[in-house]
Simulated scan of single mutants.
Amino acid sequence: MGSTIFAVFLPIALALVMFGLGLTLTVGDFARVLRYPRAAVIALVCQMVLLPAVCFGLVLLFRLEGALAVGMLLLAASPGGPSANLFSHLAGGNVALNITLTAINSVLAVFTMPVVVALAFSRFLDDSESIGLRPDKFAQVFAIVLIPVAIGMWVHARYTAWSDRMRGNVKILSIVVLALVVTAAVAKNFDTLTENIGKLASICLLFAVISLTVGYFAPRLFRVDADQAIASAMEIGIHNGAIAIAVAASVLHSDAMAVPGAVYGVLMNIPAAIAAYLLARYVRQDRREPVPVAG
């Protein structure tokens, strides 16, 4: 009975979260990438290519096996989380770029997530029945991730005044729902969690720190402005654990694969908050620096 309730409630909960995301998006948010082409391309390459590779290395380093290894890579393939915008705002980042990256990442993840998970299945489970690019699994990921976003965008465009009034309430409700999803996933898989808590806590914290670091310094190496690099750091460093949990439980039908997403959903707030504090201090100090006057 508990499994049935979890399986039914989880997609509904994630749909609410993604609907709330859709209420914040417009078609212009996708087009805005043309205003920040360098920052967007660097962030997307890091998100889609570099971080899954980093996560794979960490999984091997910590000797994570089976469903937990697949769940960790599923998390790495997930797009940025809803709280990325909040942390970016606190750190002085370019929130408009965050919104753009979230929009594009959410679309691309529908195509990249099945590929990453298929490779993870073949490496860690040797299972021919992986998600791969099977049409039914692809359709489920599409329905979980994109359809609620599209509905939210339509509502925002059609009923803009109502959307503007409700956006704050939906965001608060989404945060509560996310917390409930993570709590439910932890409670449902408590034995698996306690048996692997050391490895999972270590790998999730280290992955979050590396993601935030890469997200900031990779754009800066290519002379991207600091506020855009901060937006990139938060978008890359804060993965959507709710999507990872929902895909694991509802699409892949594996409760164990949901555990890494649940652990990350709790622990990632620590390095994200520290990074936001340090970056905000850096931005304030940088703005106070006197501009050299040519003699």
Score class of each variant (00 low, 15 high):
residue 169 N to T: 14
residue 213 T to L: 05
residue 205 L to H: 06
residue 171 K to L: 13
residue 194 T to L: 10
residue 189 N to S: 10
residue 196 N to D: 06
residue 169 N to I: 10
residue 176 V to K: 06
residue 162 W to E: 15
residue 154 W to L: 12
residue 186 V to Q: 11
residue 139 A to G: 09
residue 140 Q to S: 12
residue 186 V to K: 03
residue 206 L to N: 08
residue 153 M to F: 00
residue 175 I to T: 05
residue 176 V to H: 08
residue 201 A to P: 01
residue 157 A to L: 04
residue 199 K to T: 15
residue 185 A to R: 02
residue 207 F to Q: 13
residue 158 R to E: 08
residue 200 L to N: 05
residue 194 T to H: 13
residue 146 L to N: 01
residue 141 V to H: 06
residue 179 A to P: 13
residue 140 Q to V: 09
residue 210 I to H: 06
residue 146 L to A: 03
residue 159 Y to D: 15
residue 184 A to V: 07
residue 160 T to P: 10
residue 139 A to F: 08
residue 188 K to W: 10
residue 140 Q to A: 14
residue 155 V to F: 07
residue 203 I to Y: 04
residue 219 P to W: 00
residue 184 A to R: 03
residue 207 F to M: 15
residue 163 S to P: 03
residue 219 P to T: 01
residue 194 T to R: 07
residue 141 V to Y: 03
residue 169 N to E: 12
residue 186 V to C: 08
residue 169 N to A: 15
residue 141 V to M: 12
residue 192 T to F: 08
residue 192 T to V: 11
residue 186 V to L: 15
residue 176 V to E: 08
residue 144 I to D: 01
residue 192 T to D: 06
residue 186 V to N: 03
residue 154 W to G: 06
residue 164 D to K: 10
residue 136 D to R: 14
residue 215 G to M: 00
residue 149 V to W: 00
residue 215 G to S: 01
residue 142 F to L: 11
residue 174 S to V: 05
residue 190 F to D: 05
residue 157 A to W: 04
residue 151 I to M: 04
residue 167 R to I: 02
residue 149 V to P: 00
residue 202 S to A: 13
residue 157 A to T: 05
residue 211 S to L: 07
residue 151 I to A: 11
residue 188 K to D: 11
residue 193 L to D: 06
residue 209 V to F: 12
residue 180 L to T: 08
residue 142 F to S: 06
residue 198 G to E: 14
residue 138 F to Y: 07
residue 151 I to R: 02
residue 144 I to F: 03
residue 196 N to H: 14
